[in-house]
């Protein structure tokens, strides 16, 4: 479904992503784990078009999206929940969700809005509240709901557990599993919380300073002694 081939990302002279290749198949949850600064977010941004790759190719559903600007990528069915949520704090919860459906012209938007409210009842309670007044967990739910409003086939999640209490982390990860199973949305998950990510993922890649060093089934990756030592403690 998503094929990333030999991409490089440079910030000035710094080569942040070095010849990274991986793929995500339809229906999977794929985890990309790695330490702070390994380049996880850069990969996410390269896929969604927020930053430019210096070489390599990104293919989604058979289309080359390497050079596509971010506002066009989402139309292909690829939505990103960015690191730090980045909800629109001055807009109401409902307006945030409507922004998620910005490009949609079909008649099912209202139906999907109801679905999001059903999945995240707390957002329903706070519909007309400014999004900036929500708690961290609620903001994460809003960011996910907002991305789902674009009816994505592939959902990119960047550090969904960041800054959340363990109970909330469990709740969020249950919802990710649900979105994958019930709605058939393929998920690419970037996480520092490797334990949690590997527990729900089908496959995983380990990223170290811009290189993929380990890859395979999530259960195998979790057993890999090097990974255990570095990320799972």
């Amino acid at each position: 479904m998503l094929k990333v081939e030999n991409i490089n990302v440079h910030y000035g002279v710094i080569n942040a992503i070095k010849n990274v290749s991986f793929e995500v198949n339809e229906g999977e949850i794929v985890a990309l784990i790695g330490a702070n600064g390994a380049g996880k977010t850069s990969i996410m941004h390269a896929i969604s078009g927020l930053i430019k790759t210096s070489s390599g190719r990104i293919e989604f559903l058979g289309n080359d999206i390497t050079k596509e600007p971010a506002h066009k990528v989402v139309a292909n069915g690829l939505a990103q929940v960015p690191e730090g949520r980045r909800i629109f704090s001055q807009l109401s919860v409902q307006d945030n969700l409507e922004m998620g459906a910005y490009l949609r012209t079909d008649s099912k938007v209202q139906e999907d809005l109801d679905k999001v409210y059903k999945r995240f009842p707390r957002l329903n309670e706070r519909k007309s509240q400014l999004a900036g007044t929500l708690s961290g967990g609620e903001q994460q739910m809003l960011a996910m709901g907002r991305a789902l409003m674009s009816k994505p086939k592939l959902l990119l999640l960047d550090e969904p557990s960041m800054g959340l209490s363990p109970i909330l982390v469990n709740e969020i990860f249950d919802i990710i599993k649900e979105i994958n199973k019930e709605d058939g949305v393929t998920v690419l998950l970037v996480e520092q919380n490797a334990n949690k990510a590997l527990s729900i993922a089908h496959r995983a890649y380990v990223l170290e300073t811009g290189n993929i060093t380990v890859s395979g089934d999530a259960t195998d990756v979790a057993k890999n002694p090097k990974v255990r030592e570095a990320y799972l403690g």
Binding site: G49, H71, V74, A79, R86, F88, L91, D95, M99, Y102
Partner: peptide, 24 residues
């Protein structure tokens, strides 16, 4: 309006607005 809300979204976070499909 949809366009007006998009304007407010852009004024707050251009990157996030791009991710929504808004042409900044």
């Amino acid at each position: 309006t949809r366009l007006g809300k998009a304007m407010r979204a852009v004024s707050e976070d251009k990157g996030a607005a791009e991710l929504m499909g808004i042409n900044v």
